[in-house]
Amino acid sequence: MDKTIKIQVRRYLPEKQPDPFWQEYEVPLEPKWGVLDALIYIKDHLDGSLSYRWSCHMGVCGSCGMMVNGEPALTCATFLEEYQPGPIRIEPLANFKVLRDLIIDTDDFMGKLKSVKPWLITDEKRDITDGENRQTPAELKAFKQYTLCINCMLCYSACPVVGLNEDFVGPAAIALAQRYNYDNRDSGNAARHDTLLAHGGAFDCTLIGECSRACPKHVDPTGAIQRYKADGAMEYWKRLIWPKAATAPKNDGIVKQID
């Protein structure tokens, strides 16, 4: 081992010790090693009890998000060399419940994601013989950016509103709601308005902009939320002034039966 770097890990082993604690490891400073490689090295060679999530090691699965020196980051895309001389402090993603070491409880996020119905909702009956549901490049462009979300939850860690207000549905969920709202094949806006206009919806956001700075895929949840506020406020006034003209809620889009 020529050069090394110190890694401090926020650990939590509830069956051994009730409180979280810091543990320091020394790992080789290999060129092109990501922080994730350092954690894998620790688990393989130094301490098999360390727990963390990862899968693809190439920035698309969204599993390896952690706080690196206080900033949310995908550890596979964050390189040791950038943190010389160290030490590097690694913590579980902020604003989440922690189950063990670097593993956070994703249930709350999954529930919030589901509450905005991020799937195609349509009353249109289509037969297999109708073929593909074609879209023009312009129609695709209207929402494509929002499809790039990998559910890594970095934006939830970056957003102070998520930390201050546990009801807030959060940046990624709203961006994914907009991914369907702006899809011309979808007609589920009304169902999503019900969540996004309610308490905990888009209007809890105070436009800090940290979500877009943290996003590794440049989804820009800030823009998605702001654009929703404009559309949502319009819908609110419509429902207030002339309820009949407001978009009537349709089905919830869950396919009950496929022939």
Binding site: D167, V169, A198, H199, G201, D204, Y236, W237
Partner: peptide, 10 residues
């Protein structure tokens, strides 16, 4: 999430 009326858009 509460389903009570939210006037924040107003």
């Amino acid at each position: 999430m509460s389903s009570s009326r939210n006037n924040d858009p107003f």
